Deep mutational scan, measured.
Amino acid sequence: QLNEKPLPEGWEMRFTVDGIPYFVDHNRRTTTYIDPRTGKSALDNGPQIAYVRD
């Protein structure tokens, strides 16, 4: 279940091809599976993935 609260300024939620949510921090140009609103991860110790700018 996804959090309904808005993401912090400069953050975006995207999904992997497998449908796993991850979070893009455009301020720091990093990505993470940890939801910045809750501190909880969509994966157990998930790796960071490459930042992609559209």
Rank of each mutant, 00 (worst) to 15 (best):
Q1C: 15
Q1D: 12
Q1R: 04
L2H: 09
L2F: 09
L2G: 08
L2K: 14
L2R: 02
L2D: 09
L2Q: 05
L2E: 08
N3T: 08
N3F: 09
N3Y: 10
N3G: 05
N3E: 08
N3Q: 06
N3C: 06
N3L: 05
E4Q: 05
E4T: 10
E4G: 05
E4I: 08
E4V: 06
E4M: 11
E4A: 05
K5N: 09
K5L: 08
K5W: 08
K5A: 11
K5V: 11
K5D: 12
K5I: 12
K5G: 11
K5Q: 13
P6D: 14
P6N: 15
P6Y: 06
L7T: 01
L7W: 02
L7F: 09
L7D: 01
L7S: 01
L7N: 02
L7K: 01
P8C: 00
P8Y: 02
P8W: 01
P8K: 03
P8V: 03
P8E: 03
P8T: 01
P8A: 04
E9T: 11
E9D: 14
E9M: 06
G10H: 01
G10V: 01
G10K: 08
G10M: 03
G10F: 01
G10A: 05
G10S: 04
W11I: 11
W11A: 02
W11L: 05
W11E: 02
W11T: 07
W11V: 08
W11M: 07
W11H: 03
E12S: 05
E12T: 06
E12H: 02
E12G: 03
M13G: 09
M13A: 12
M13E: 12
M13F: 13
M13P: 05
M13N: 10
M13K: 15
M13S: 11
M13H: 05
R14W: 04
R14V: 04
R14G: 06
R14P: 00
R14K: 12
R14I: 04
R14D: 06
R14F: 09
R14N: 06
R14E: 03
F15M: 09
F15R: 13
F15T: 09
F15L: 13
F15P: 03
F15C: 09
F15K: 12
T16E: 00
T16M: 03
T16Y: 02
T16D: 08
T16F: 02
T16Q: 06
T16V: 02
T16K: 03
T16S: 09
V17C: 07
V17D: 09
V17W: 05
D18C: 12
D18K: 05
D18E: 10
D18L: 04
G19M: 11
G19Y: 14
G19C: 11
G19F: 07
G19S: 09
G19I: 03
I20C: 11
I20R: 10
I20T: 13
I20E: 15
I20K: 09
I20D: 15
I20A: 13
P21I: 10
P21C: 10
P21T: 07
P21K: 12
P21D: 01
P21S: 08
P21F: 03
P21M: 08
Y22E: 03
Y22F: 04
Y22D: 00
Y22V: 04
Y22S: 01
Y22C: 01
F23S: 01
F23M: 01
F23L: 01
F23P: 01
F23N: 00
V24F: 05
V24H: 03
V24S: 03
V24R: 04
V24Q: 04
V24G: 00
V24N: 01
V24K: 03
V24P: 00
D25E: 02
D25H: 05
D25A: 01
D25L: 01
D25M: 02
H26S: 08
H26T: 06
H26V: 05
H26F: 04
H26I: 08
H26C: 02
H26L: 05
H26W: 04
N27W: 05
N27D: 14
N27K: 13
N27C: 10
N27T: 07
R28D: 05
R28H: 15
R28T: 14
R28V: 08
R28C: 08
R28N: 14
R28P: 01
R29T: 07
R29V: 04
R29N: 10
R29K: 10
R29H: 05
R29W: 09
T30N: 02
T30W: 13
T30P: 00
T30M: 15
T30Y: 15
T30F: 15
T30V: 15
T31C: 08
T31G: 02
T31F: 02
T31D: 02
T31A: 06
T31Q: 01
T31Y: 02
T32N: 02
T32D: 02
Y33L: 03
Y33D: 03
Y33G: 03
Y33P: 02
Y33Q: 04
Y33V: 03
Y33N: 05
I34M: 12
I34W: 06
I34S: 09
I34N: 07
I34E: 11
D35C: 04
D35E: 03
D35S: 01
D35W: 00
D35R: 03
D35N: 04
D35A: 01
D35G: 01
P36S: 00
P36D: 00
P36E: 00
P36A: 00
P36K: 00
R37I: 06
R37M: 03
R37Y: 00
R37H: 02
R37G: 03
R37L: 06
R37W: 03
R37C: 04
R37K: 02
T38Q: 14
T38V: 12
T38Y: 05
T38L: 06
T38A: 13
T38N: 13
T38G: 13
G39C: 10
G39F: 05
G39E: 13
G39I: 10
G39W: 08
G39Q: 13
G39D: 15
G39Y: 08
K40Y: 11
K40L: 11
S41N: 08
S41M: 12
S41R: 08
S41Y: 07
A42Q: 12
A42G: 13
A42H: 05
A42N: 10
A42W: 09
A42M: 11
A42V: 12
A42L: 12
A42I: 10
L43Y: 11
L43T: 11
L43H: 13
D44P: 08
D44Y: 06
D44R: 11
D44C: 07
D44N: 06
D44G: 10
D44S: 10
N45E: 10
N45V: 12
N45R: 10
N45H: 09
N45Q: 12
G46Q: 07
G46W: 05
G46T: 12
G46R: 11
P47D: 14
P47L: 07
P47T: 14
P47V: 08
P47A: 06
P47E: 06
P47M: 07
P47N: 13
P47G: 13
P47H: 13
Q48H: 03
Q48F: 08
Q48E: 13
Q48D: 15
Q48T: 15
I49P: 15
I49T: 15
I49E: 15
I49L: 12
I49A: 15
I49G: 15
I49F: 07
I49Q: 15
I49Y: 04
A50P: 14
A50H: 13
A50Q: 12
A50I: 07
A50N: 06
A50M: 08
A50V: 07
Y51M: 13
Y51G: 14
Y51I: 13
Y51R: 15
Y51L: 13
Y51W: 12
Y51N: 15
Y51F: 07
V52K: 12
V52M: 15
V52L: 09
R53C: 06
R53F: 02
R53V: 09
R53A: 13
D54F: 02
D54P: 02
D54R: 05
D54A: 03
D54N: 06
D54K: 09
D54I: 00
